[in-house]
Amino acid sequence: LKHLCRKALRSFLTTYQVLALPIPKKMKEFLTY
């Protein structure tokens, strides 16, 4: 489930946009992995 969620997010968010999100650092590391 997490993998699918990440894949969906990565499909419409660039790494830069993910880093700009107001989310915890650990979550950013997970999303930009």
Rank of each mutant, 00 (worst) to 15 (best):
15 T>C: 10
25 K>H: 03
18 V>D: 10
1 L>T: 03
25 K>G: 02
32 T>K: 14
4 L>H: 11
5 C>V: 12
21 L>S: 10
3 H>F: 01
30 F>C: 01
7 K>F: 02
11 S>M: 13
4 L>G: 03
33 Y>H: 10
15 T>R: 07
27 M>S: 00
28 K>W: 14
1 L>P: 00
6 R>S: 06
33 Y>N: 01
3 H>T: 12
20 A>Q: 11
10 R>Q: 09
25 K>W: 03
17 Q>N: 11
19 L>T: 06
17 Q>A: 10
14 T>I: 12
32 T>R: 13
29 E>I: 05
5 C>F: 11
30 F>E: 02
2 K>E: 03
31 L>Q: 00
13 L>V: 10
14 T>E: 10
18 V>C: 10
22 P>R: 15
29 E>G: 03
23 I>C: 05
19 L>G: 07
2 K>L: 09
12 F>N: 00
9 L>G: 09
5 C>L: 14
27 M>Y: 02
3 H>Y: 02
13 L>G: 02
13 L>T: 05
15 T>N: 00
27 M>Q: 00
1 L>Y: 05
25 K>P: 05
4 L>Y: 12
25 K>A: 06
6 R>W: 09
21 L>A: 07
21 L>T: 03
18 V>E: 13
21 L>C: 09
28 K>P: 01
6 R>K: 12
22 P>Y: 13
17 Q>P: 02
20 A>C: 11
8 A>N: 02
23 I>N: 03
2 K>C: 07
32 T>S: 09
14 T>M: 08
26 K>N: 05
33 Y>K: 11
25 K>Q: 04
32 T>N: 04
17 Q>S: 09
28 K>R: 11
8 A>K: 07
8 A>F: 06
15 T>L: 14
9 L>I: 09
26 K>R: 13
5 C>S: 07
31 L>C: 01
18 V>W: 15
20 A>D: 11
18 V>Q: 14
32 T>Q: 07
5 C>K: 09
3 H>K: 11
19 L>W: 07
28 K>M: 10
29 E>W: 01
2 K>A: 08
14 T>K: 13
25 K>L: 05
12 F>I: 09
4 L>P: 01
10 R>L: 10
8 A>C: 04
12 F>K: 00
17 Q>E: 13
9 L>V: 11
1 L>K: 05
1 L>C: 08
16 Y>K: 13
4 L>M: 03
27 M>P: 00
10 R>V: 08
29 E>P: 01
5 C>H: 02
11 S>Q: 03
24 P>A: 09
19 L>R: 07
14 T>N: 05
5 C>A: 12
5 C>T: 08
20 A>E: 10
26 K>W: 14
20 A>K: 12
11 S>D: 03
7 K>W: 08
2 K>R: 02
33 Y>L: 11
12 F>Q: 00
22 P>E: 14
11 S>P: 07
28 K>G: 05
23 I>A: 04
8 A>T: 07
7 K>R: 10
1 L>Q: 02
4 L>I: 08
9 L>T: 10
25 K>N: 04
30 F>W: 15
8 A>D: 01
24 P>E: 01
11 S>R: 13
22 P>I: 15
4 L>C: 05
8 A>S: 04
24 P>C: 11
6 R>M: 11
6 R>E: 06
12 F>L: 12
13 L>Q: 07
3 H>V: 09
26 K>P: 07
9 L>N: 02
12 F>T: 03
13 L>M: 02
14 T>Y: 09
23 I>W: 11
14 T>G: 06
9 L>A: 11
23 I>K: 03
3 H>C: 07
9 L>Q: 08
15 T>S: 05
15 T>V: 14
11 S>E: 03
29 E>C: 02
31 L>G: 01
4 L>T: 05
19 L>E: 11
12 F>G: 02
19 L>Q: 09
10 R>W: 08
26 K>V: 09
19 L>V: 07
29 E>F: 00
2 K>Y: 07
2 K>V: 11
2 K>T: 08
16 Y>A: 15
5 C>E: 01
2 K>M: 09
22 P>A: 15
25 K>C: 04
18 V>Y: 13
27 M>L: 13
28 K>I: 15
21 L>W: 10
22 P>L: 15
3 H>N: 10
15 T>D: 07
15 T>H: 00
31 L>H: 00
26 K>T: 05
20 A>H: 12
22 P>C: 14
12 F>H: 00
30 F>L: 03
23 I>T: 11
25 K>D: 03
22 P>D: 14
23 I>Q: 04
12 F>W: 01
25 K>T: 06
21 L>D: 10
3 H>E: 12
9 L>M: 08
28 K>N: 02
3 H>W: 02
10 R>K: 11
15 T>G: 06
15 T>Q: 01
1 L>G: 05
3 H>I: 04
20 A>M: 10
19 L>K: 10
23 I>S: 08
13 L>K: 09
5 C>Q: 05
14 T>V: 10
31 L>A: 01
30 F>H: 01
32 T>M: 09
28 K>E: 07
27 M>V: 11
22 P>S: 14
27 M>T: 00
18 V>A: 14
16 Y>V: 15
2 K>W: 11
25 K>R: 03
7 K>I: 08
7 K>Q: 08
7 K>N: 04
4 L>E: 02
10 R>I: 07
29 E>R: 06
18 V>L: 13
12 F>Y: 00
19 L>S: 08
28 K>V: 12
8 A>V: 10
15 T>E: 07
27 M>R: 00
15 T>Y: 03
28 K>H: 05
22 P>V: 15
16 Y>C: 15
13 L>Y: 09
24 P>D: 00
21 L>E: 09
21 L>R: 13
1 L>F: 11
10 R>M: 09
10 R>S: 05
14 T>P: 01
13 L>R: 08
29 E>M: 04
33 Y>S: 14
24 P>I: 15
1 L>V: 07
11 S>T: 09
23 I>G: 05
6 R>G: 05
26 K>Y: 03
8 A>W: 10
33 Y>F: 12
6 R>H: 04
28 K>C: 09
3 H>D: 13
12 F>V: 10
20 A>N: 11
12 F>D: 00
2 K>D: 04
10 R>D: 10
23 I>F: 07
15 T>I: 15
1 L>I: 08
27 M>A: 02
33 Y>C: 11
13 L>A: 06
5 C>I: 14
22 P>H: 14
20 A>L: 13
9 L>P: 02
3 H>S: 12
25 K>F: 03
8 A>L: 12
28 K>A: 10
10 R>P: 04
18 V>I: 08
23 I>Y: 01
11 S>I: 15
11 S>A: 14
25 K>Y: 02
11 S>C: 13
28 K>Q: 06
10 R>E: 11
3 H>P: 04
22 P>M: 15
9 L>W: 11
24 P>M: 13
22 P>T: 13
